[in-house]
Amino acid sequence: MRKLKQGERKFQVMMRRTNLYLIFILLLSPAWGWAQNEGTLRLVFSLEANGKPIQLRDSSYHNGFGENYTINKLKFYAGQWILGDQLIDEYLLVNAALEENKIDLSLQPGKYNQFSFLLGVDSIRNVSGAQDGPLDPMNDMFWTWNTGYIMFKLEGNSPQSTADLNRIEWHIGGFKGPLNVTRRIRFDAPFEIVKGAITEIQLKVDLDKIWKGKNEFKIANDPMCMVMGSLANKIADNFQGLFSIRNVSVPK
């Protein structure tokens, strides 16, 4: 075996590295190509009341009837996104306790004019046993005694509440027939998806509209809604009004 010269050694090391990179690129290329065929729609939810970002516990808000309240919990499910002819069967649990609430959806490039999502959890997932991720029952959005998800949860306090400790507790659930509180939230908004780029749509969630929308609710009358039925359904009829589009970015 002859001794390698300094130059040859360097060359060999370089070749090995090149080989390694080549193999790496070859192995990853199908995934790379696939990812590159799609673009990303990023949906960002900002939760507000009285025109301010919602801060749990510390801040006080008022509804359209002059009733003051604080918010301890505000959570809801959004899923089954429909964009053009694509259905994306993923869920996001929007939670006011989080810094940011967003979901990235992979889409075919092109121009879109509308999109929609289901506020709540589809009926199949309410009857199919133990789920994971955002739908894990550990997220405290699940009724055990009458199986099903809580689709929308608002908890807080108000001096106008006649309930124990002046509490507000709205657990809006139910997925069967006339008890179904899930609602499809629709938006008309032109946006464009470009291969390999991110288009961001900012959605404003205005809690003021839960009290005064299609239907009106005074804390003094309805501080509690803990079961399925007509009150839950009337509250659900206000869901669409909570949402508006604040901004649509160009793909970047």
Partner: peptide
């Protein structure tokens, strides 16, 4: 009230 065996133990 419980519609699937898997979620029964949660009760």
């Amino acid at each position: 009230g419980v519609n699937h065996l898997e979620v029964q133990p949660l009760n």
